[in-house]
Structure formats: C-alpha cells, structure tokens
C-alpha cells in the first residue's frame, strides 16, 4: 500500500468503515510510515475533540419537565 492509497482511506479508517483486510493493510502501512501515522493520529484527535466539545451540554431541567408533562397531560 502506498501513502496515497492509505491517505485516500484515512477517514473511512478512523470512522471504522473498512473491511478487516483493508484495515489490516492500513495498519501495516502505519506501522512502517511515520508520515501517514502522524496524519492519521491528527485526524483521529480532531474527531475526538469534536465529539468531546459537542457532548458537554446538559439539557435544561425545564425542558425535561416540559417533555414529561406533555406525555402525561
């Protein structure tokens, strides 16, 4: 697998969309290729950051009350 081939599948790899054989091929490439490994690591971190900062809010209690109330009029 070349760097270009690996990078083309970067997002599918970090999103766990690839079959096992392709995943293994990429893993092997990442073990040998520092450049790709860094880039994959970076994109994975980016994904984790987005997850973390979009997961931090708590629904206001009044909203929960309103919803429960509307189910139990």
């Amino acid at each position: 697998m070349t760097c270009q081939e690996a990078v083309n599948k970067l997002y599918e790899y970090i999103d766990s969309e690839l079959d096992r054989a392709t995943t293994e091929k990429i893993k092997k490439h990442l073990d040998l290729c520092r450049l790709c490994c860094d880039q994959f690591e970076f994109e994975k971190t980016m994904k984790e950051l987005v997850h973390k900062c979009c997961d931090a809010a708590k629904a206001p209690d009044v909203l929960k009350e309103k919803i429960l109330k509307s189910l139990n009029p």
Binding site: C54, D55, A57, K58, P60, L63, I67, L68
Partner: peptide, 29 residues
C-alpha cells in the same frame, strides 16, 4: 428520556441557539 442530553447537544449544534434547540427537541419528542 435517557437520550435527552444527547439530543439537546445535537440540537444546539444544529440550531446554534439554546432557545431554538429546546423547541426543536421538544417538538421531536
């Protein structure tokens, strides 16, 4: 009901405004 926080977070990012997010979540429920 256990999904409420999760939906509220997504709604906030969709509407970019807490008031609209609340309305949106309530309507969805």
């Amino acid at each position: 009901v256990p999904l409420l926080d999760n939906l509220y977070n997504i709604a906030l990012r969709m509407t970019r405004n807490p008031k609209d997010a609340e309305d949106l979540v309530q309507e969805a429920y």
